[in-house]
Computed example of a mutant assay.
Amino acid sequence: MLSRGGLRVVVDAPWFNKVITAVILVNAVTLGAETSPELLASYGDALHVVDRLALAAFVVELLLRFGAYGKSFFRDPWNWFDTVVVVITLLPAATGAFSVLRALRVLRVLRLVSVVPSMRRVVSALLTALPGMASITALLALVLYVSAVIATKLFGTVAPEYFGDLGDSLFTLFQVMTGEAWSEVARQVMEEKPFAWIFFVGYLVVTSFTVLNLFIAVAVTAMQSQMTEEHAEHDREEMAATMEILAEVRRLRADVEALRGKAQV
């Protein structure tokens, strides 16, 4: 029976993380294969066995990590994420309204986010950027609403299928903002109102080229800040290790001087 320290050495070992990553990838392939009726008919039993083995591996992994870290296991939000995902997939398969629980097994693939450090950094950066993104989302919603009201009043009679009421205008302008077939909408309106291009071009410049790019800017800034913090933390750890080595060297020098003094006496 391994001690807590021994378990910690095992779960923190690079090979352990690689094994879990491999299990997640294999499970992702089997879950995708189960969506094919042909593969399910031919290899259904084998796919089911692999799925059960993968789930058992995830349960064992969580138990090992909990045994290694004890109560501190739940101090890491990623451990909570892994636990919730595995618990959801442990729920018995049901029928009817609860048959969706079986489909939720694919959530196990999301554990790659917690296993792969680079993915964890990206998700952490996105979570850090949420407050800034919320402000940009509010600004985008305000621009969309104002533009929809204007478009309904200007183009409601010209293109009622697109701008007949506020709801239609909101949906149409959201589609225009994504760049999906916006020229078709604009050209249909311009047949009756030739200067309508001014509205559409101005709206695209404000939303697609300005506001939406702010999302990218906020996300990139958050990732850069996180990388800077990680580098600073790494530098602090290296500095602490260096200071510890220097302190040890000073202690050794003092011991050598003391031994020399005794030898001279």
Rank of each mutant, 00 (worst) to 15 (best):
A151P: 02
G202T: 10
D255A: 15
L110R: 02
A129C: 07
E248V: 06
P14R: 06
L7I: 06
P14H: 04
G261H: 07
A97F: 12
A125R: 05
S42T: 09
F74G: 04
I216V: 15
M243H: 11
Y43A: 14
M1H: 13
L142E: 13
V146Q: 11
E184W: 04
G164M: 03
L142I: 08
E229H: 09
S99C: 01
L25N: 00
T128G: 06
R121T: 06
L64Q: 01
T157C: 00
G67D: 09
I20E: 06
A151W: 00
L101H: 02
T178P: 02
F215M: 08
V106H: 02
E191R: 11
P14E: 09
A196C: 05
M190A: 15
V201N: 11
F209M: 14
L166G: 04
R102S: 12
A196D: 03
V84R: 07
A94G: 08
D235R: 15
E192V: 06
G179V: 11
F155E: 02
R250I: 08
F200K: 00
V122F: 13
R250N: 13
A232I: 07
T178C: 06
E38K: 07
A241G: 11
K18Y: 07
E257K: 12
V109W: 07
V87T: 13
F199S: 02
D76A: 09
S36G: 03
D235F: 12
T30Y: 00
E191K: 11
Q188N: 12
L64S: 00
V85M: 06
L90N: 04
A151R: 00
G202S: 14
P37F: 01
Y203W: 08
L154E: 10
F155Y: 10
Q224N: 13
F171P: 01
L91R: 03
E38H: 06
K153M: 05
H48G: 13
P194Y: 04
A93S: 10
A196I: 02
A181N: 15
A56I: 11
V11H: 03
T95P: 00
V189Q: 01
L53H: 05
Q226N: 14
L170M: 14
W182A: 08
T152A: 07
S147E: 03
R4C: 03
P194K: 04
L47E: 06
L154C: 00
T178F: 10
F58K: 00
V109Y: 03
E229K: 12
T178S: 15
R120E: 04
R236D: 14
D165E: 04
L25T: 03
V205T: 13
E38D: 11
D255L: 14
A222S: 13
A247H: 12
V249G: 06
V149N: 08
R120N: 01
D76H: 08
I216P: 01
V60F: 10
P194R: 09
L246N: 10
T30V: 11
R65I: 05
A254M: 13
L166H: 10
W78C: 02
A22C: 04
V249H: 12
V205L: 15
L139P: 00
L139N: 05
S169A: 14
T242D: 15
V185E: 00
F98V: 02
A68F: 04
L204Y: 06
E34K: 11
Q188P: 01
A181E: 15
V123D: 02
M133S: 05
G32M: 08
